[in-house]
C-alpha cells in the first residue's frame, strides 16, 4: 500500500529534468534583465528620506527601497495594464469607477483593487461603474499596500492572470493601489503605465514636494479642482510645480464631481490602447 521507502536515496536532490516549453505567461522574464532597462524608467531612489506613512500604519520594513526587483513586463498579446496610485482619499476608486463608466462599453475591461475591499465597494462599482462583480478582483496586502504593488507583486500578477483566464482576452486592466503616500510607485513588472492621483485638498504644495509618485508617474491627475477655491489651493502653482518636477510627462486637472467620465484620463488611455494595436 505504501510507496517504496526512500531511505536508499542519497540526501541530495535529484537533478531537475529538462523543462518543456512553457506558455509565454509562465516563462521567466529573464530575457528582460534589469540592466537593459532604460535609465529613465528606473524609479528614483527617494527612499527613505521622502517617506511618509499614513496615520494608521505600524512599523514595517521596506525591501530595497527605490529598487524595482521585478523585470519589466514582456511584450505579448495581453491587456494593457495601468496602475492607479495615490494618497488615501485622493479619489482613486472614484477615478476607477469613472473610467469603467467611460470605457466599459468600448474596451474589454477588468479591475484589480488593492484597497480594503468590501461588498459595499463592489456594489459601488456595480452601481456607478457598470462593472460586473466578476470583473473585479480584490487583493489583500497585509497592511503593506506599497509592497504589494512594488516589492512583491505576485498576488497582483496572479489576480491579473486569473482575470484573463476566466474572462478571456482583455484590452485593459486597471490595478488600483491601496491608499498610500507620495512615495508609492508601481513595479514595471506589474503594470505598463501608471497614473498618480493627488487632490487639491491635500494642499497645492504636493507637486512641489515631489516623491516618486508625482515625479515619475506616466500621468499625474490633480483631482477635485472644484474644491480649489474652498481650500485656497492655487491651481496655477500646482501646474507650474508639476511641470518643473515632471518635465515632459503629462498632468491633467480633473473634477470627478463635474466630469463623471474622467474624460482627459479616458482619452489618454484610449491613446495608449490604440498605440498598442
Amino acid at each position: 500500500m505504501h510507496p517504496e521507502p526512500q531511505h536508499s536515496e542519497p540526501p541530495r536532490p535529484e537533478p531537475p529534468r529538462p523543462e518543456p516549453p512553457r506558455p509565454e505567461a509562465q516563462r521567466p522574464e529573464a530575457q528582460h534583465p534589469e540592466a537593459q532597462r532604460p535609465e529613465a524608467q528606473r524609479p528614483e531612489a527617494q527612499h527613505p528620506e521622502a517617506h511618509e506613512h499614513g496615520p494608521d500604519e505600524v512599523p514595517h520594513t521596506h525591501p530595497e527601497a527605490g529598487v524595482d526587483p521585478h523585470t519589466p513586463l514582456g511584450e505579448g498579446p495581453r491587456a494593457l495594464r495601468i496602475g492607479i496610485g495615490g494618497p488615501v482619499g485622493s479619489g482613486k476608486t472614484a477615478l476607477v469607477a469613472a473610467l469603467c463608466r467611460a470605457l466599459g462599453g468600448e474596451l474589454r475591461l477588468a479591475v484589480v483593487t488593492n484597497d480594503i475591499y468590501t461588498t459595499e465597494d463592489a456594489d459601488f462599482l456595480l452601481r456607478n461603474g457598470v462593472l460586473p462583480a466578476e470583473r473585479v478582483r480584490a487583493v489583500e496586502t497585509g497592511c503593506c499596500p506599497h509592497t504589494a504593488i512594488r516589492d512583491d507583486i505576485s498576488a497582483n500578477l496572479d489576480a491579473v492572470e486569473d482575470l484573463e483566464a476566466t474572462l478571456g482576452p482583455l484590452d485593459l486592466v486597471l490595478v488600483e493601489s491601496g491608499g498610500d503616500n507620495l512615495t508609492a510607485t508601481f513595479s514595471k513588472g506589474l503594470i505598463d503605465q501608471q497614473i498618480f492621483v493627488v487632490d487639491v485638498a491635500g494642499g497645492d504644495k504636493v507637486p512641489r514636494k515631489g516623491g516618486p509618485g508625482v515625479t515619475t508617474a506616466d500621468l499625474l491627475v490633480i483631482n477635485k479642482t472644484d474644491l480649489a477655491p474652498l481650500v485656497g489651493a492655487d491651481l496655477s502653482v500646482m501646474d507650474r510645480d508639476a511641470k518643473a518636477r515632471r518635465h515632459e510627462l503629462p498632468t491633467v486637472f480633473l473634477s470627478l464631481a463635474e466630469d463623471r467620465r474622467a474624460t482627459p484620463v479616458a482619452d489618454w488611455i484610449r491613446g495608449l490602447v490604440a498605440a498598442r494595436v
Binding site: 526587483p69 521585478h70 497585509g142 503593506c144 512583491d152 507583486i153 505576485s154 496572479d158
Partner: peptide, 13 residues
Amino acid sequence: DGRLPSGGHAHSG
C-alpha cells in the same frame, strides 16, 4: 529572505 517576492507579506499564517 522575507524580501523574496513570493507573496508572503500578504499572509499572516
